[in-house]
Design a binder for these strands. Structure first.
Lengths: 251, 251
DNA sequence: GTGATTTATTTACGAACGAAACTGATTGTG
DNA sequence: CACAATCAGTTTCGTTCGTAAATAAATCAC
């Protein structure tokens, strides 16, 4: 299946929440059989749900939905980030969709890694990989994003100090730094960063033009950014000026 | 749909892991259309998965699977137990399937309740009820049963002291008490009990003839048992002799 | 007890399904 | 250059799907 048709299907499904096979076939000018095959593959990747006659969007607040946006780019970023992790290392992972793919990549590489996370989605996402040990922080459960937050989660962090923390971001402004769009999640991520030597950000380049609400980190706090080649020059210059290691995977 | 056919379908699906509609229709002597309707309802309850042409068992370690056994009895037990919880109360819930139904019942009753649990299944199960606040303990994630266990989870308990704890059980022996079949889960449940005033056990009566591996509690530690009318006399006598409040819902 | 309503099931039918065979374009190999 | 292998997509086929209308049994009202 060509990637651009996969993207178009995901776009259409995400816009409509629910769309039937016939409509997809009409809009994309291929047969229904082809659409059905595409949908089966996309369902296997966890990017949508199939039902008899139509395709359903995953819960939009759910990571499965966010995974569906720029899936291939995120996958390449995650593959690159997985190289940064040593065998038997203990890392922290936040709740971003690219972070979930990083965890899955580590699982596939069959390296033993211990993962500390706030995300129940990620814990379940890597269920099938016995080489991954997962520790979840406790706290107030945010059911829409499937993470724990709040003072209890921050207190639980006191038990851990790791070399690397991997997070996503919701936005970036060249003058001021990285942003999140949920105050509770931003708060816990900042606390995680204080207990990690290196702060690594995984994000597709679309976020570099999307300033968001709550500043999470100034650029100089960041060790490495892994993104794709679509990042604006203004942003990449600021990052390198602040001593950030910038890794770009091919588009 | 008659309840006994629903039970038979669940039995057949659970035994076979995967069974097609035609076979179910033959064995139960009804039409395929009727089977399909039954399967749709059972899927809506989360007790199995439908695919084109057949029904699939839920992951057997998963609570969804355990929920499917004696579903109606468990539901009645949960409904009765929900009456024991006050508005604005904070309770602890362990990972049992009947406990999950208790949480859902509390959600449906629209009382505000704060739930502290080790089970991510339960946290997600009650996602849609805004009147429930869920706090999860942190710890080592056991992906098959979707709970956190281990010393970190026990340490997290230090922050909480509640009036009531609700747990399930895997077995009971009249001479020695209640049993679990997983040492890590038994360990954390015992720690939970130390931080709760009343220990309440919710279980269908089938467990009273199934001694299990690890003793969790002697009968005298238990405040209330909610079960169905199928409990053997020998067991109910021992319980009441030990000062346990025994509540039996109709079969 | 009789007629009305509800519940359970079947029959009928057009749409959707998966699997397999087929077609045409692209890629790799000697 | 030829020719096999792979890939993307379509056509075809027998099966399963969901919905709606028909039928039968159980429950209820009075």
């Amino acid at each position: 299946m060509p990637n651009d048709r996969a993207d178009k299907i995901l776009q259409l499904v995400n816009d409509a929440k629910k769309i039937d096979v016939t409509q997809l076939a009409d809009k994309l000018h291929v047969s229904k059989v082809t659409i059905r095959k595409d949908l089966t593959k996309l369902e296997d990747k966890g990017l949508l749900q199939r039902k008899h006659g139509f395709a359903l969007i995953n819960n939009p607040n759910n990571l499965s939905y966010r995974l569906a946006q720029n899936y291939d780019t995120k996958l390449r970023i995650a593959q690159r980030a997985a190289q940064m992790v040593e065998v038997d290392e203990t890392i922290m992972i936040e709740s971003g969709s690219t972070c979930a793919l990083l965890a899955a990549q580590l699982g596939k590489l069959d390296k033993h890694v211990t993962i500390i996370t706030i995300s129940y989605f990620i814990a379940n996402f890597v269920e099938r990989y016995p080489n991954l040990d997962v520790f979840l922080l406790g706290g107030k459960y945010q059911s829409d994003s499937q993470v724990v937050v709040g003072p209890m989660a921050k207190a639980a962090l006191a038990n851990f100090r790791v070399g690397q923390l991997f997070i996503g971001t919701d936005g970036f402004d060249p003058n001021t730094g990285f942003y999140g769009n949920d105050i509770m999640r931003t708060d816990i991520v900042q606390a995680m960063a204080e207990n990690a030597k290196d702060l690594n950000i995984l994000t597709d380049s679309s976020k570099f033009n999307a300033p968001s609400i709550i500043r999470s980190f100034t650029a100089d706090k960041v060790h490495t950014v892994v993104t794709d080649s679509g990042i604006p020059q203004a942003c990449s210059r600021v990052l390198t000026q602040n001593g950030v290691q910038l890794i770009q995977v091919d588009a």
